[in-house]
Every structure is written in structure tokens, then in C-alpha cells.
Design a protein around this nucleic acid. Structure first.
Lengths: 101, 101, 101, 101
DNA sequence: GTGGTCTAGACCACA
DNA sequence: GTGGTCTAGACCACT
């Protein structure tokens, strides 16, 4: 099920949105392990970099957390709620980060 | 007491530095037996692989020596000095190699 | 083509020896890029860790050098000679250390 | 459920027999993974060496096979049958092995 | 899409 | 009961 590239928006945002959808739909349950980076690459037909950008944003926004050497997991709801209220703050940081490169 | 002390992004480098510190501070004296790999795992909250990577480097740099079936020991200072000098020589060669690309 | 060729009970030593052989035979020429870690895994039927252990030793002994994100390459001969001499010196020191127990 | 030590026979033989029993009873099914060495130590209250001696004999007699880094597994029945017919031959080899030490 | 680091946990060789 | 080797597979840093 590759994501489409019709309009001008970034590919990684589509991957990100697709994953958020699956989390909200309960497809990926709290504390459950998500597919690996490689599996997301296959699943959406995108590069590793694209997947990582999406997962990085989801991590910063509190949807997921990652454990080195173990995997990627869905954050517990409580944490998710707290964090989403500060997404605006986060977005600024992300933007700034982009500027620093 | 997990490591968070220093620079050196890699975990095994933090473990390595922590152990060097303890040796230099005289916490672990020459010829004394060090904790086992498992104990270092507990102490620093890392996997055995990470501990072994640190101990392997310490062995190569002459800080410690290991005897299968017996344990890990602090090297006598004299030997340590001889070897660390050699290691620097090493590092330069490798660095030069990289520069030549 | 799994390794079964030589002595040296450890698997990573057999992989290492096999690669040295190929370098000395001119199969892998100086400055040429070697197969990736994954390819060595397939070729010799071993895990990535085993391949990495072999490549790590070859790096220390100056046969090859590695560039993150790029690949593994055969070292120029001159550099190789300098380093292998150093390594022998090393080995003696370590061996002597063991004898002192 | 520690094994008893009443009579003079070796402890490892009791462990061995206990495991054979569990295989024949279908407790451990063909191709199933057996408990680890450490678990057998706990289970029977014996040392690692004892467990290893038992597992080593079971391997040679074709009841089980071991994969380094993976675990110990029950051999398929067919293989077991073929091998048990040559157990006598095996026993000689084991005896000879003991002599060589 | 490479090499680098890390996890978790197995069996092996030796003392 | 230590250190040594190996497996399988994850995420990370860089090109």
C-alpha cells in the first residue's frame, strides 16, 4: 500500500499521517511494538530516510518512543495526550532545528 | 548507577571512561580483579555486548588483561604505559589513512 | 560457499583468513571496495556480528579501512606493512603479560 | 524437582535420563526448543558442567541437536531412530574420548 | 544504503 | 562460573 505523491507536500508527512491514523484506529495499540524501519520502507515504498523523518517527528510529538536495539513502540495514551497539547511548542523547535542545518 | 557522566556519545565509551577513571583513581588497583561482565552490565545498565566492547578496548590499550575462566584484572602500570604509547602510534596511522582519501 | 577451509576454531577467524587470502591473491585489490557486511554474511553463512569481528581485526591489522556510509576498502600495501609490524609488537606485550600470571 | 544422588551412578546420567524421559513422553516435542543450560541447572539443582555432560551425550546419541547462539532442540524422530541403532558404536567413541584426556 | 551501536540471550572453552 | 563466540535483529550516524 504505497503512499501517493500527487500534491506538493512532503512524502514523510504522508507516512507520518498514515501511522498516526493506524495508532488512532487502534491498529497499533499502546505499548505495542511497531513494524521496523525496514518494514515501513517496504510497506510504503519509500526510502529509509523518509521513514526515519516520520518516526522522528512522531517521537517528538509523543506518539511513539524508540528503544535502541529493541524497537519502536506506541506511547501510552496519557503521555500522548499531555504531549499533543504542546505540539505547537514542539513544532517551533522542529522548525528551528531545520534552520540550524 | 547508570552512566550519564561524560561526552563520547557511544555508550561503550562512557563505560570505558568510567572504568579508566576508577583505575586512575586507584579504586581498582594494579593486579586486582575487576567486577565480572555481568556485574558491569548491572552497574551501568547496559548489555553485555556494550560492556565487552569497552573491556575489549581497555585490553587493547593495556589498562586491563583478561583470563578466560578466571576474570578481568588491572594491568601493572609499566605495561600500560608501553602499550598506550603504541596505541597512539596506531591511531595516527589510521587517521593518516583516512586523510588520504 | 560457507567457510570450512582452515584451522582457527573460531568462525570469525575463518572469515578473516578467507578475506586475507582474497586480498593477498589480488582478488580484492588495494583501494578497491570490499563486499558489504550483509554480503559477507550471505557468502559465509554467518551473522553480522561474526563478520564485523573479522573486519574489525582486519582494520586493526591494517588490511582494510572502513568509511561509515560508504563502505569497506582494501588498504594500500605500505600502510599495511607499517601497522602489522606494530601489531606483532602488541601481541608480544600482551602475551608476556599473560606469562607473568 | 532436583535429581537424587542416592546410589553411586553419575549425576549427569540422571539428568540425561530425565531429559530422555521427557522427550519420549512427548513433553519435549521434535524440533521444539529445550530449556537453556542455565534453566536445566536450576531445574535439577546441578552444576553447569553436569548439565553440559548430559546434553553432550544426548547430542552424540542423536536425541537433540544444538545451534550455537540459538539453543538446544529435540531431533526429529527419524534421525533419532537411525542414530540410536548405532549407539553402541558411539559409546565406544565416548569411552575413547575419556581415555584421551 | 553503508557501517556503527545496542539489545537479549543462546552455547562454548576453560579453570 | 568466568570470559569467548555466535545468533538475530533492532535503531543510529553518515553519505
Amino acid at each position: 500500500m504505497p503512499v501517493e505523491t500527487k500534491d506538493g507536500s512532503a512524502l514523510h508527512l504522508k507516512v507520518k499521517d498514515a501511522i498516526i491514523q493506524l495508532i488512532n484506529d487502534g491498529e497499533y495499540k499502546p505499548e505495542a511494538q511497531l513494524p521496523t524501519e525496514a518494514e515501513f520502507c517496504d510497506k510504503y515504498g519509500v526510502s529509509r530516510t523518509t521513514v526515519r523523518t516520520a518516526l522522528q517527528q512522531l517521537t517528538m510529538e509523543g506518539y511513539i518512543y524508540r528503544k535502541r536495539g529493541s524497537g519502536t513502540f506506541v506511547a501510552a495514551h496519557k503521555v500522548k495526550q499531555i504531549l499533543t497539547t504542546t505540539v505547537e511548542h514542539f513544532s517551533k523547535q522542529i522548525t528551528m532545528q531545520g534552520k540550524n542545518r
